[in-house]
Structures are given as C-alpha cells and as structure tokens.
Design a protein around this nucleic acid. Structure first.
Lengths: 208, 208
DNA sequence: GATCATCATTCAAACGTTTGATCAGTTATA
DNA sequence: TATAACTGATCAAACGTTTGAATGATGATC
C-alpha cells in the first residue's frame, strides 16, 4: 500500500529520472491543455514512465500539477529583490518590465499557468499563485510609494491603477500573442523596442 | 434516433426553455471551470433539464460550449462601430476603454472565456475568438493610424505596441482581480477614476 | 564471502467510477 | 395523428487510482 509521498531530495544528489521526466513532460502538456485537459496516461506516456509513478511520486495528478506550478512560480520570487536595489525609482519599474520580458522568453509556459490559474483557479491558486502575484503587486506599490515620497511622481494618480497599468501593458502583450501572431510582430528581436515604448508611455504618464 | 441539431430560431418567438436554460446555466459553469472542468450531468442538473437535451439541442457538450462562446463574444462586434464615429481620435480610444469596462461589468463571465481561450484554446478559438480579437485590434490600429495622419500622435511609437498597451492596461486590471481583490479596490464605483487614470497615462504617452 | 532481509522503485493489470453519447420509449403540441 | 420535445436507462470508453508482484541495490548476519 502507498502510505505517503516518498522523500524529496533538496539537493539534486539522486537524479530521480522518473520524477524529473514527469515534471519535464507535464509542463508543456498542462500549460497547453490545463489540469483537466490532460490524462495521466498522456502524462506518463510523454514522460516515458509507468502511469502509476504519478501517484507514487506526487500522490496523484493534482500533486504533479502542484509540483509543476511550484517550480514555475519559484522564479517570480526574484522580482522582490528589485525594490531593494539602489537605482532610481523609475529604473526599478523598468527592471520589472525587463525581468518580466526575459522571464516569459526563457520560460514560454509560465504565462499559460499564470493566466490559466487566474481564469480557472485550481486548488493551487490560493496556496501558490495568489501569494506570488500579491508579492509582486506589493513590490510595485512600494516602489511607486518611494517615487511619490521623493516627489518624482505625480500625486494625483491612484497607485494601484498606475502599477497595474504598467503590469498590464507588458503582460497583455504576451497573453494576446496566440490571437494576434499574424497581426503583430512578437519576435524577441523587437523586445527592446517594446520595452522602450512601454516605459516611454509610462514615464510620461507618472512623472511630475 | 438523433439526426441533427433541431431548428434554431433567429427570432425569439418560441422561448425554448430547455435550450435557454442550458445556455444560462452553462455560462457560469464553463467560465469558472473551463470546458473540461464541467460534466454534462452537472450542466443538465444546473439547468434543471434532462442530460440528453444537450446532445439534442447542441449536438454535444462542445456544441453547448460553442453556443455559449458565440453568445458571449457577439457583444465584441459593437466595438467595430467606434472607428466610424465622428469624434476625436483620442476620444475613440476612450470610447474603447469605456466600452470594455462596461462590457466586463455587465457580463462578469466574458473575461474568463476570453483569457481561458487565449491560454487553453479549444476548437472554438480559431473560429470564434481569434477573429473577434483580431477585429478589435485592427480597429484600434486603424484608429491609431488616423491619429498619426492627423499629426496628433507621436510618430516615433510603434502602433501595435501602443494599442496593445492601452488594451493591456484595461484588460489586465480585470484579469488580476481574483488575485488582488484584498490588495486593490476593484469596486465599480472606482471605474470612472480608473478610466481617467488610464486615459491620462495613455494620452500623455501618445500625443505629440 | 555467502545468505538473508529490507528497502525504494518500477511494472502490468485491474480496480471502481465517471465520462459523453445514444437509445427506445413516452408525453406534449398543433 | 404526425411531429417535436423530452425522459430514464444504458452504452462503451476513458478516467484517476490502487494493487501485488518483480527488480535491483544495500547493509546486516552468520
């Protein structure tokens, strides 16, 4: 009988191919079809392992999904460091935009999980996604407050409207890609121009 | 034997309670859990009709889903009229933002279908969602071109970056609501302020 | 050094349940 | 009475999970 989920190595000493392969194969599948859109047989088949390994290592399909999301969202923690950096307040916003772009470029599946959980939340939403997002928004709000107290930013703007506007400009660009691929050039080569334009609009909007 | 889908009244002369109830019940369920997250029994139960009515009226679960999406996205067609209106170019953008806000307020499920299809596209994506989105983006691009040729807008901005920035600001605000409800005030009473701030940032960004 | 017990791991097979779809049959309508 | 609307029962297929056996490596015991 299966009692619990077996040990999880913190240090990657033991490779655990089976476990590793399952997560690697699950990422693109869950990202494309969602938790309910993929079967355990499809997951096991793509990973090249026996389907009972999902229950063995993750306690079930939802456990594997949670493991995937945990791995995907770990990278969001890096954003918190931005506020502590010793650069101009406005440059912190640009760092956020740049970090967001490079995150989506280096991990093409993150945004799918992000919006999938926002739209059709699973059990993971409250435990993993919501806290991660709130940390980022809080960081942006604090950064805005810094710029306000330094008398760099206009004081007639609502902080949340402002930072969500910035986050919206950059996130929505990537979200819309599947629908506007033929209409809009989403090539990575254009990222620098995109960042400049977004920061341009934002800067004119918030500066005194 | 079931041969095909029965007649679909264009004019709502016959009420067709069964069909109507199914769509009405399916909207919140599909919006919350996605196509694969709801069973036909759950749908029929919520509508208070027999399970086989789904196949009878819509040819199956996916048919009901398509009917829901068609109904939800029909309202997007209204946006096309904006470009033809005889108002200032910048005011057209504000009309777009206002229409978007009021659309999400009057139909709280639309955004879920919108982003759900963008993230985990079903068969409906290519036929219903993609064309609808592209029409809106095209309308915004044309509006921007008008402002450019009138020498009202800066000519050093990329049109697509600009209009997607505007669309992102307003859409992302609603998308993020489930995650930031405790952090950000999303009350409809604040909508007017939100619109003003977004248009404020956008106007400063694009005007010469 | 050989034997044994123990352990995590992996497997094929089967589990019971739920799925979406369909059927023949019944009621309602016109 | 003919057609449309609807019902309860039933279907095969797919679902996620569990089972018990097989495997191979590890360490202790004699």
């Amino acid at each position: 009988m299966m009692i619990g989920i077996p040990f999880v190595e913190e240090n990657p000493v033991a490779d655990n191919d089976c476990r590793k392969n399952l997560i690697a194969a699950a990422v693109p599948l869950f990202a494309a079809k969602g938790l309910n859109g993929v079967s355990v047989r499809e997951l096991a088949g793509a990973a090249g392992v026996n389907l009972s390994m999902i229950s063995y290592y993750f306690g079930g399909k939802e456990g594997l999904y949670a493991a995937v999301l945990t791995e995907q969202f770990a990278i969001l923690g890096k954003l918190e460091e931005i506020e502590q950096m010793e650069v101009d307040t406005l440059q912190k916003f640009e760092l956020y935009v740049r970090a967001t772009v490079s995150r989506y470029r280096s991990n093409p599946y993150l945004l799918r999980f992000y919006t999938s959980e926002l739209t059709n939340p699973t059990a993971c939403f409250e435990t993993i996604i919501k806290p991660a997002i709130r940390k980022v928004v809080q960081m942006l709000l604090d950064t805005f407050a810094d710029g306000l107290s330094d008398r760099k930013f206009r004081d007639d703007l609502n902080p949340t409207d402002t930072v969500l506007a910035l986050a919206g400009m950059i996130n929505f660009y990537f979200l819309l890609e599947p629908a506007t691929a033929e209409l809009v050039d989403h090539a990575p080569e254009r990222d620098e121009q995109l960042i400049r334009h977004i920061m341009d609009i934002f800067t004119r909007g918030v500066l005194r």
